[in-house]
Each structure stands twice: as C-alpha cells, then as structure tokens.
C-alpha cells in the first residue's frame, strides 16, 4: 500500500532534520510488563481465593500481595526512572491534569499500591506469626487481619482500571495508529491475566491438583485469545496506511519480525502446547516451565508492540 504510493509518486526526502527515534524504550516495556504482573496476580489470585479453600492453595493469601507489591514497585520505579525530570513527578499530584490518562493512572496506581502494601503486610504477618512479634504496628496489623478479606473485593475492582489505563495512554498517543483503544484495552487485560496466572503457576507447587489445573487452563485460554488477536492484527488488519506501514516492521523481513515471532512462539504457542498436553497428568515441571516462558514471551511481545509505531517518520 505504502510502497505503491511511494512508487507512484517517486518522491524521496533529500534534506531533513534528524527525527525522534524510539522515545519510550525498554523502561516502558518493563513498566508495562511489571504492572501486568502486579495487577494480574491480584485478579487471578483473588479468584482462586474465592474459588478454593486455603488448604488447597496455602500460599496464595500471603504470596499474592507480596508478588504484586514487588511488581508494582518495579513498575513505579521504572516509571520514575524514565522521566526526564523524575523529581518533578510530584507535579502529577499538585498540578494534575485530569484529561490525561497518565495523571488518572498515576493516582489510581498509587492508591492501588498503597492498598496492596496493606494486604501484603497483613498476609505476611499472618503467615509468619513470629515475625516482629513485639512490634506495636505489627500487633495492630495482626489484630485487624480481617481487613484483608474486606478490602480484597475493592482492590480487585481497582485492579481493572489500573490494568487498563496504560491502554488509554496508548490510545491518547494518537500519533501511533497501531495502539487503538478497544483492542489495546483487551490486550492489556489479557496480558494481566496471562501474567497473573503464569506467575501464580510458578509458585503453585504446594497446591492441590485441581486448582493447579484451573490456573494452568486460565493461562492457556488467555494466551490463546491474546495470540489470536495478535494474529488478527498480523494477517487480517487492513487498516490505514500508517498502521500497515507499522506492521511491516514485524512482517517477514521487517526489523522486528524476529523479536515478534520469538515472543509469539516462546510466550504463546509453547506455553499453550505445554499446558494442554501436561495438565491432565499434572506434570508440574512442564506447567511451571509454561509459566516462565509465558512471562518471557509477554515481555518481548510488549516490547515489540511498544517500539514499532515509534519507527515511522511522522513528519
């Protein structure tokens, strides 16, 4: 499409300034990846807590908020590191501009991280009764441990917009036609569920067979849907010339084709195959491997999708 336009016009740039290259790079990839884990484990973990008794999934109550806490802090750290004026981050709170998904997201993510910190503290102190035994604050937290179950539904509810606001930022980045709102929102949600189920699968050794099979199937179904959407974009998206030119970077011969297919095979195709073939006999080694691969693949899929629209000349 673009090629034929260029051929028809025979137009070529002979003098131009250097254009912006990749502006949002690996730090933003890491940011999105870590946030997917941070919100995903809460959504999937809460579902498992609702579905199964504690003896079947003994470590979820404390491990879920701790993993989320660590992932959210990685996400916040790299958000900050990527700013060109990191110390001015406070302006988001003192001079907020609420039409911006960056602002709304920062507020929600901060609240979410605060609540998850509380869950992590309660979960950990309940799990380790001897930890900080004589500490006053720890005693207070232990005395109010029922708060965990009361807060969890609200935290899950908050996890949804915290997951999706990045997709809205991408949609607001209207220069990048590839990141269209409904599909990016769906992919962001799928990424979170995929990351959450993959992470919990990695720590599911002590679980019963049934909950392990369930979380493995959540992973398999999620990667299947997400992969289908990627393939839809890859093969059947006949959008405007800008999106087509962007997708050319992942089509065969494109500079990001290898990374894209690496992500698809490692993060989507192999985990799906591993889960569906080993879930019945509960081969945990393979299931755990599927979880690890899904997390690796997700990182690279996010990386490609973030970078390719930034390779197009916009002016």
């Amino acid at each position: 499409m673009v090629e034929s336009t260029v051929a028809a016009t025979h137009a070529v740039v002979s003098f131009d300034v250097a254009l912006n290259g990749i502006v949002w790079g690996w730090m933003i990839t890491l940011n999105m990846w870590a946030k997917s884990i941070g919100t995903g484990v809460i959504m999937v973990g809460a579902y498992m807590l609702y579905k199964y008794s504690k003896d079947k999934i003994p470590n979820v109550r404390w491990l879920m908020p701790i993993i989320s806490f660590v992932a959210l802090n990685v996400f916040l750290l790299f958000t900050l590191l990527d700013l060109h004026q990191p110390l001015r981050m406070v302006n988001i709170f003192f001079h907020p501009h609420f039409t911006s998904a960056i602002t709304v997201g920062a507020w929600m993510a901060s609240l979410f991280t605060g609540l998850v910190t509380l869950l992590a503290a309660i979960g950990l102190l309940d799990y380790m009764p001897n930890l900080l035994r004589s500490n006053k604050t720890a005693k207070k937290v232990r005395a109010n441990s029922g708060l965990y179950e009361k807060l969890l539904p609200y935290i899950v509810f908050l996890a949804l917009p915290v997951t999706m606001y990045t997709a809205i930022i991408m949609a607001q980045s209207s220069a990048r036609g590839l990141w269209e709102a409904p599909i990016e929102m769906a992919q962001m949600m799928l990424a979170a569920i995929m990351a959450g189920s993959a992470t919990l699968l990695i720590v599911a050794e002590s679980w019963g067979k049934e909950p392990r099979a369930r979380i493995a199937m959540i992973l398999a179904v999620t990667v299947a849907i997400s992969f289908t959407l990627y393939m839809g974009e890859y093969f059947f998206s006949f959008k405007n010339s800008e999106v087509e030119a962007t997708l050319a970077f992942i089509h065969l011969g494109g500079s990001y084709s290898f990374e894209f297919w690496f992500a698809m095979i490692v993060g989507y195709i192999i985990p799906f195959a591993l889960v569906t073939t080993s879930v019945k006999e509960d081969n945990y080694t393979l299931l755990r491997f599927a979880g690890i691969l899904a997390l690796i693949g997700l990182y690279f899929a996010k990386d490609v999708w973030l970078k390719i629209p930034q390779l197009l000349p916009l002016s």
Binding site: L83, I102, S173, Q310
Partner: peptide, 20 residues
C-alpha cells in the same frame, strides 16, 4: 518549568512537532 519529561506529548503529537 512544570514539565516532568514523561514524553507523553511526543508520543501523542501526530506531526512530530515536539522535542525534548
């Protein structure tokens, strides 16, 4: 003096009119 350098505007401007 208010800009935090998030580069959101660079990502949003369809005309590449903003620089850091």
């Amino acid at each position: 003096s208010r800009c935090i350098g998030c580069a959101g505007c660079i990502m949003a401007c369809p005309y590449d009119a903003i620089y850091m």
